[in-house]
Each structure stands twice: as structure tokens, then as C-alpha cells.
């Protein structure tokens, strides 16, 4: 298992409770400190008020969409250096390249296994 030293904080922005629980539990078991938000506004509030090492972002959210959250984070000098891993139900290549071009550090497609989630986060926070 990857050694983390001090516990890094990961913020999960996902509206679906089961998917949020799954992701946060896996990351807790991997010894990250986890924050959770169920919509974009709450997510942006949490990322501004905490020392967040990485954001796991669902692209399809009620209200302020994941795409909007991504572009706001990337255009804000205070937040732009925080890596954002997006995850989405769409495996479309066009969406993937659009998200990566928009500054996403990785693009994960649902359904998602515990292993692929763990590996993606570990690779970025290495």
C-alpha cells in the first residue's frame, strides 16, 4: 500500500448518496481525510474553506453543474493548482478530452471499482 505520510484531504462532490458513500469509504480506508458535498455550491464552499489536496467531482450535478465547478476552480488562482478527478456516466471520448482539456487530472467512468478509484487518487497524490 502507498504510504501517505500526513493525511491528505480529498473532497468528494457527488449528489448520489450511495456513490458518495462508496468513494468516501474507500478513501478513508486508504487513510485519506475525506470531505463530502452533495452539490456544486457546497463543494466550492468546502474547497475554499479547507486545505484540500484533491477534488473528486461528479460532472452531472443538480444546480451548479460539475463542468461549471471545474472551470471555476481552474480559473481561480487560489484553487487552480488543486488536482480535480472527474467521474461521470459517459464514456464518450469527446467528453473525456473536453474534461482533460478543461484541466481535469483524470477522467473516471462509472461504474467504478474500488481499485480504479484508489489507483487514480494514489497516482496523482503520490
Amino acid at each position: 500500500m502507498v504510504k501517505k505520510g500526513s493525511r491528505a484531504t480529498v473532497l468528494i462532490i457527488e449528489d448520489e448518496v450511495n456513490i458518495r458513500t462508496f468513494a468516501s469509504r474507500v478513501l478513508e480506508l486508504e487513510d485519506y481525510h475525506v470531505l463530502q458535498a452533495s452539490d456544486g455550491d457546497e463543494g466550492l464552499r468546502l474547497v475554499r474553506g479547507n486545505q484540500v489536496a484533491l477534488v473528486l467531482l461528479d460532472l452531472r450535478l443538480p444546480g451548479r453543474d460539475g463542468w461549471v465547478v471545474l472551470s471555476q476552480m481552474k480559473s481561480d488562482p487560489e484553487l487552480s493548482s488543486i488536482p480535480v478527478v472527474v467521474f461521470t456516466a459517459s464514456a464518450a471520448a469527446q467528453q473525456r478530452s473536453q474534461a482533460l482539456a478543461g484541466g481535469a487530472a483524470d477522467y473516471l467512468v462509472k461504474p467504478l471499482s474500488a481499485t480504479s478509484l484508489r489507483k487514480s487518487i494514489a497516482r496523482i497524490l503520490r
Binding site: 456513490i19 462508496f22 474507500v26 456516466a89 461504474p111 471499482s113 474500488a114 478509484l117 484508489r118
Partner: peptide, 24 residues
């Protein structure tokens, strides 16, 4: 396909988590 993906994500996520972290 979108609506099926939501329960599928729950199933895939929780079942792989149960497999990977069983003893913990």
C-alpha cells in the same frame, strides 16, 4: 443507459469495496 448506470455504480462500487477491504 444513464439510469441503469446509477444502480450499476452502486453495485460495482460496494461489491468491489467488500472484496478489497473485507477484513477491515
Amino acid at each position: 443507459s444513464h439510469e441503469l448506470r446509477t444502480p450499476l455504480t452502486t453495485i460495482k462500487g460496494y461489491s468491489t469495496m467488500l472484496l478489497d477491504y473485507d477484513t477491515r
